[in-house]
């Protein structure tokens, strides 16, 4: 269980996260919704400790990870998570296979001679053939890059995967394939997932719980069914994807 309490993060005078409180249930998929620039990526970067929060707590199995400063303990904290970057963040100086195997030497005891088998297995898990391992990241389509990136995350067997907008920039079919993959990871290996998205179709399909982040706070947390039925005008406008409503009025004022 991951529990976020009163999390704060500012960049200069811009208060991105004001008071975030959220529970991430083990083995479940929690989607975090919010508009562009609402602080969704900042939130999961704080969880991964890629950014330092300014206040509050992130409890992972009861331990506050925001207070860890020792570089080795910090690496151990990060070990809990896998992070799927929005654009994949594949190392472009390496082949796909080298990318997938990259974390193995740092985070696992798997001997080098077994890496090809791991690469093959993880690529198969994301629906890619073994031959893809020889390609360079620049030769891959957007959807393939995300799948290779997911294979790289799966190779290190994290307990929780943080997905940063996994379906953004993909066509509807590829978006659905990625959504299915996220669901499959939960069903097959019972992995905990936190998915940052503004793709409502994907969020409703995959989520066990949804949190709506607005103005640096979680405005609504609930099941997809509760989100469908909510009469909160902010969430309603976001779910319906309408240009008219309180969010638009606020944007106009700014």
């Amino acid at each position: 269980m991951i529990e976020i309490k009163h999390l704060k993060k500012s960049f200069g005078s811009h208060h991105v996260l004001r008071d975030v409180n959220l529970k991430i249930e083990d083995g479940k998929i929690t989607s975090i919704l919010g508009g562009s620039g609402s602080g969704k990526s900042t939130l999961i970067k704080c969880m991964m400790r890629l950014l330092d929060s300014d206040g509050g707590e992130i409890l992972v199995n009861g331990k506050d990870i925001t207070k860890v400063t020792n570089p080795f303990r910090l690496a151990a904290v990060r070990r809990h998570f896998g992070y799927l970057f929005q654009e994949g963040a594949l190392f472009d100086s390496m082949t796909v296979g080298e990318n997938v195997a990259f974390g193995l030497s740092y985070l696992t005891d798997i001997p080098k001679e077994k890496y090809p088998a791991v690469i093959k297995e993880k690529l198969a898990m994301v629906g890619l053939k073994e031959e893809v391992a020889k390609l360079n990241p620049s030769e891959l389509s957007g959807g393939m890059r995300k799948r290779v990136s997911l294979a790289r995350v799966l190779a290190i067997s994290p307990k929780c995967i943080l997905y940063d907008e996994p379906t953004t920039g993909l066509d509807p079919i590829m978006s659905d394939i990625i959504s299915d993959l996220i669901l499959e990871m939960k069903k097959k290996i019972g992995i905990t997932s936190v998915v940052i998205t503004h793709d409502m179709h994907s969020a409703f399909k995959i989520s066990d719980y949804i949190a709506f982040l607005y103005e640096g706070e979680i405005m609504l947390y609930g099941t997809p069914e509760e989100f469908r039925k909510t009469d909160n005008p902010y969430v309603r406008q976001f779910v319906d994807g309408s240009s008219h409503g309180p969010i638009q009025m606020k944007l106009m004022r700014e």
Binding site: K45, M48, R49, L50, P71, A75, R78, R79, F81, G82, Y83, F85, Q86, E87, A89, L90, F91, D92, S93, F102, G103, Y106, L107, R152, V153, I156
Partner: peptide, 21 residues
């Protein structure tokens, strides 16, 4: 140029997530 490109494409962050820095 190489490290800078890695920085702006989140590849440096990816190093942290994969057990190194």
């Amino acid at each position: 140029a190489h490290i800078g490109t890695m920085a702006v494409t989140e590849q440096l962050d990816a190093l942290y997530t994969l057990g190194t820095n």
